[in-house]
Design a protein around this nucleic acid. Structure first.
Length: 400
RNA sequence: GGAGCGGUGGGAGAGUGGUUAAAUCCACCAGACUGUAAAUCUGGCGUCCGGAAGGACUACGUUGGUUCGAAUCCAACCCGCUCCA
């Protein structure tokens, strides 16, 4: 038997819904090593913090001795996620899929225990699929059943397109559950329909239906919409530690507790206390949050450095430790400050440069610490080794 | 087979002959303020030339055409969608 605190951490925290919870708890208590299914679509290899919520859940269960089966959706990737609007999606070559999968796995195992994970490819079973198998599979469901799905129902009503292949998507995903004999499948709430089809299909194949673990949606850095790459409000695992820390600091204050709950192990009792004093300590709590999460993906030294960097650069308006460098010796021809910025790709066009100058965003920091604002590229500027050019709050270029 | 609709800037989405480098929103950038790269406010947000005023070029699926002038009209084409059968 699992103790109550652990159990509630698993079934309550960072979970939207479990179907069905009682069956799931029974399974947990059965002492059997459970097969936890998680699939991903190799057309989008990036993992961001939104995904991490679910991955942490997998890790928790692994720590109790269960087995993760990670499915590389090399077939479903070609169909595209029905919840997305863009139907047209270029078919990926085998090499692209492979590369994407590798990149995904690398990130995946930063959260999930590789030792307790089995990676399988959909093509292992769909590769041999024949038309007759497809027909058998499709014959199990009706159009009406599929139109039950919110997304389909909505689009159907609005006279918006639904590709036939999109109907196939849940079927393939469901069949994965049959193929790997999953006990539990994990997904976001938008995956509910697909996971439930898996349940049904397993039953139709004489198996015990899987439990469905629905993860809550994490809001993105805008504090409003769900974290997603297409909304550009995501924090990727590929972020540099400084950026990861900084992006977390850029979250609206009222996201803090939610992030603590979904992405850290801070006890809920502590979180309660924190919540009550949040308005007065938002800054400190957010720093703690940023540090805690950064620490999950990097070592302690790096997390500390990121915090120092933030305090130094943002709070004290200092110069960050690692900034791009422009070497005067290699580039003797044109010492115009505009050319230097353009050549270093700090600024992407002349027009942008002019705008920045006009907006008073360009500043020279001399080696002796004195500063001067630059309003025009033609003013006489003494660029010597050790000078730093600062653009806005976050762009720097050091002259050597 | 028939009928209709649509393709606009990073995204969403207006605009149906000139005042449109193209409303608005989101994202993004800068400035102010601040406890943060929070919030709020202000400004900006194609490229090139110019100190600036301003000018030039490129852009609204593609190619042609009408016109002094086209994202806007016409033709053909390409792509997509919906409905009826």
């Amino acid at each position: 038997m699992i103790d109550d605190i652990t159990l509630s951490n698993i079934t309550k925290r960072g979970v939207k819904e479990i179907i069905s919870e009682t069956e799931f708890v029974e399974l947990l208590n059965s002492g059997r090593k459970l097969r936890l299914k998680m699939g991903f679509d190799p057309s989008r290899p990036d993992i961001h913090l939104g995904h991490v919520v679910g991955l942490r859940k997998l890790k928790q269960l692994q720590d109790l001795g269960h087995q993760v089966i990670l499915i590389v959706g090399d077939w479903t990737a070609q169909i595209g996620d029905p919840s997305g609007q863009s139907i047209t999606r270029p078919m990926l070559t085998h090499d692209q899929v492979k590369n994407n999968a590798e990149s995904y796995l690398k990130q995946f195992f930063r959260v999930v225990d590789q030792e307790k994970t089995e990676v399988v490819w959909q093509s292992e079973w769909f590769g041999d699929f024949k038309l007759s198998d497809v027909i058998t599979l499709t014959s199990k469901f009706t159009v009406a059943q599929f139109l039950e799905r919110d997304d389909f129902a909505h689009r159907f009503k609005e006279h918006k397109p639904i590709a036939i292949t999109e109907f196939l998507y849940p079927l393939l995903q469901a069949y994965d559950s049959v193929a790997i004999e999953s006990d539990v499948e994990f997904g976001g709430t938008d995956q509910m329909f697909n996971l439930l089809v898996g349940r049904t299909l397993q039953q139709l194949n004489g198996m015990k239906p899987q439990q469905c673990f629905l993860m809550p949606i994490l809001v993105g850095t805008d504090g409003v919409n769900k974290m997603s790459k297409s909304l550009d409000n995501y924090i990727s695992l590929d972020e540099t530690p400084d950026d990861m820390y900084g992006k977390i600091m850029s979250l609206p204050d009222d996201c803090i507790t939610n992030y603590f709950e979904l992405l850290t192990d801070i006890p809920l009792t502590e979180l309660k206390i924190m919540e009550s004093s949040l308005p007065d300590n938002a800054m400190n709590y957010k720093k703690l949050l940023a540090h805690t999460i950064t620490l999950d993906f990097f070592d302690k030294q790096i997390a500390n450095d990121s915090q120092n960097n933030f305090e130094n650069v943002i709070q004290n308006k200092g110069i960050p430790a690692n900034i791009p460098i422009y070497n005067l010796i290699d580039n003797t021809d044109n010492l115009d400050i505009g050319n230097i910025l353009l050549a270093s790709n700090i600024v992407t066009s002349n027009s942008e440069l002019k705008r920045l100058l006009k907006q008073n965003a360009v500043q020279i920091i001399n080696p002796d610490g004195s500063t001067e604002d630059i309003r025009t590229t033609t003013s006489a500027i003494n660029l010597t080794s050790g000078t730093v050019i600062k653009i806005g709050k976050r762009r720097y270029l050091k002259i050597v």
